[in-house]
């Protein structure tokens, strides 16, 4: 059942990517509306897949590479839907949907076997830690999409379609900032809850493990964004570029550290 739902969600996300692309390329409003419905449907099916897995595992599905990857994609989809509704910014999907699809695609390549948890992973703090990471990474994913729009917007023709579907630069900067604020708050929570969990599981709240170190690097990147965005000449395009770099750090923290570096987080 979970496999069917997961595959269904994957397919729907792919369809939404295609629709958003066509919406943007052909400048047809109807395609954008359809893409919105499809990505919402994908999110619902995706949620059902995670719920089914959670019931089968008897716990929150947040503990291994597959579970976190699928949750990561779910978090970005959730944040996207929230921001889309709040700011009526449909075109954002053109840049965010591919990110969701790539991450859930990565999840599809991981083992979906449900295993019993090792003692170190049997902690409520882990559930809080990963849940916060989903919101944080999801928000950064949205900020990445918004920043990409910002960076591309200047090169786009100032036609009626773009005027209607793309917020002005100030608004884009504001949406990106709000997404990063939310992500930054939750990233701080991720690090604090992770530290509490690590202290109880391994007797050290901070060990300079590569995952910890990269989460700190990501935190610093976004802290820098929040600071230098104020400086003259940094708000706008440069800040948007910084938000993109920040999300690349997020991706490396999640995937790169696990695959290229070794440490305590080898299971996640």
């Amino acid at each position: 059942m979970e496999n069917i739902l997961f595959t269904g969600a994957l397919a729907l996300y792919l369809v939404s990517v295609a629709l958003y692309f066509l919406f943007f390329a052909l400048k047809k409003e109807k395609l954008g509306v359809a893409a919105g419905y499809v990505i919402t449907a994908a999110f619902v099916v995706h949620t059902a897949a995670m719920a089914v897995r959670g019931v089968a595992a008897g716990r929150l599905p947040l503990t291994n590479q597959y579970e976190f990857a699928t949750s990561f994609a779910w978090g970005i989809a959730l944040c996207y839907l929230v921001f889309m509704k709040k700011y009526h910014f449909r075109a954002l999907g053109t840049f965010v949907a591919p990110v969701i699809f790539l991450i859930i695609g990565y999840a599809s390549m991981q083992s979906r076997e449900i295993n019993e948890l090792m003692p170190a992973l049997q902690s409520n703090w882990l559930a809080v830690h990963v849940s916060c990471a989903i919101v944080s990474y999801g928000s950064f994913g949205v900020a990445f999409g918004v920043s990409m729009v910002y960076l591309f917007r200047a090169r786009m023709a100032d036609n009626e379609f773009n005027q209607k579907n793309l917020p002005d630069a100030e608004k884009l900067d504001l949406i990106s900032y709000r997404a990063i604020s939310l992500g930054f708050l939750f990233l701080t929570l991720v690090m604090i809850t992770g530290a509490i969990w690590a202290e109880r599981a391994w007797g050290s709240y901070w060990s300079w493990d590569p995952k910890e170190t990269w989460s700190l690097v990501t935190w610093i990147i976004y802290a820098l964004y929040l600071h230098i965005r104020l400086s003259k000449g940094w708000k706008g395009k440069k800040a948007a570029a910084f938000a993109v770099i920040g999300f690349l750090c997020v991706i490396f923290t999640y995937i790169g550290v696990n695959t290229l570096l070794s440490g305590l987080h080898s299971y996640a």
């Binding site: 100030e170 900067d173 504001l174 900032y177 709000r178 604020s181 802290a223 929040l226 600071h227 965005r229 104020l230 400086s231 003259k232 708000k235």
Partner: peptide, 23 residues
């Protein structure tokens, strides 16, 4: 403060505070 300003500047981009905050 920086993050404070960030919020202000970002959320009220049209107000004078934002510009002054940076200048």
């Amino acid at each position: 403060p920086a993050s404070d300003d960030a919020g202000h500047a970002a959320e009220e981009p049209v107000s004078d505070d934002a510009g002054h905050g940076a200048e």
